[in-house]
C-alpha cells in the first residue's frame, strides 16, 4: 500500500522565488490498484510520482510504502528501495540511446551482479512480455517511439517490481501505440502490480482497468 500524508513539496528557484509544487496532498493507493493521476501541466502529477519513487524528498509530510517511511530515506536506501520496488517509465523514456535494447533493459540488474543465467532469464522474460525480443541488439536511437517505449517498460519490469510508475507514458505516441500501451498495462494489472500513471491523455479516463482517478490542480488534489 502507498500512502501520502499531508505532503508538501516546494522548489527554491532562487532566494526570492519559491515554487510550491504540492500543497498538503494526501492519498492512499492499495496493492494491485491502477491509479490515474490527471491534471494539466504543472498541476503536480509528476511531483507525486517522483516522491513515491523516492527520486526526491517531500518538504513536509510523510510517504509510506508497505508500512515503511520512505520520505526521509538516506540516498543509499532510497536507491535500494527503487531498485527492489519501483519500475519507472519516464515521459521521455530516459533510455541510454547509444546502448542496445538488451543493455538498456539489463541496467537495473547491473549493481546486483547476477549470475549470467539469472540475468538472461530476467532479460528474456521482460523482452518477451513487451514483445521487443526481435530488436534486442538494436541501438535505441535507431528505434521508433513505440519500440523505445516498450524497451522503457521492459526495463521498468526486468527486476519484477511491485510498483510500476509511468509519467505521461503516451505523450509521445500516436493513438494506435497508446492503445497498445494500455494493453501492456492490462497485462501488468493481471500480475497484480500496483500501477500509478500521471497523464492528461483522455484515453485513460474511464478505462475499465483503472481503479481510481485522482485529479490535481495547482498542487492540490481536487
Amino acid at each position: 500500500m502507498i500512502e501520502l500524508k499531508n505532503v508538501t513539496k516546494s522548489y527554491e528557484i532562487n532566494k526570492n522565488n519559491l515554487v510550491v509544487a504540492l500543497n498538503d496532498v494526501s492519498m492512499k493507493i492499495e496493492e494491485g490498484e491502477l491509479v490515474v493521476i490527471k491534471g494539466a501541466s504543472g498541476s503536480g502529477k509528476s511531483s507525486v510520482l517522483s516522491l513515491i519513487a523516492a527520486l526526491s524528498k517531500p518538504t513536509t509530510g510523510e510517504i509510506i510504502v508497505d508500512a515503511k517511511q520512505i520520505s526521509k530515506l538516506p540516498d543509499r536506501f532510497a536507491s535500494e528501495y527503487r531498485r527492489d520496488n519501483i519500475g519507472f517509465v519516464f515521459q521521455k523514456y530516459n533510455l541510454i540511446t547509444t546502448l542496445s535494447v538488451k543493455e538498456n533493459i539489463l541496467l537495473p540488474l547491473v549493481p546486483l551482479n547476477p549470475d549470467a543465467q539469472d540475468a538472461d532469464a530476467k532479460l528474456n522474460r521482460a523482452m518477451e512480455m513487451f514483445k521487443i525480443s526481435h530488436k534486442k541488439d538494436a541501438i535505441i536511437k535507431n528505434l521508433s517511439g513505440g519500440e523505445q517505449q516498450r524497451v522503457a517498460i521492459a526495463r521498468a519490469n526486468v527486476n519484477n517490481p511491485k510498483i510500476i510508475i509511468a509519467d505521461e507514458p503516451t505523450a509521445n505516441l500516436d493513438e494506435k501505440l497508446s492503445l497498445h500501451f494500455i494493453e501492456m498495462l492490462r497485462e501488468l494489472k493481471k500480475l497484480n502490480k500496483t500501477i500509478v500513471i500521471a497523464t492528461h491523455d483522455p484515453l485513460f479516463f474511464g478505462l475499465d482497468i483503472v481503479d481510481i482517478e485522482i485529479e490535481m490542480h495547482n498542487g492540490v488534489v481536487i
Binding site: A53, L55, D75, R76, S79, R82, N94, L107, P111
Partner: peptide
C-alpha cells in the same frame, strides 16, 4: 537515469 533505476551512489 542510473540513479533513478536503482543504482546507488
Amino acid at each position: 537515469i542510473l540513479k533513478a533505476i536503482g543504482w546507488r551512489v
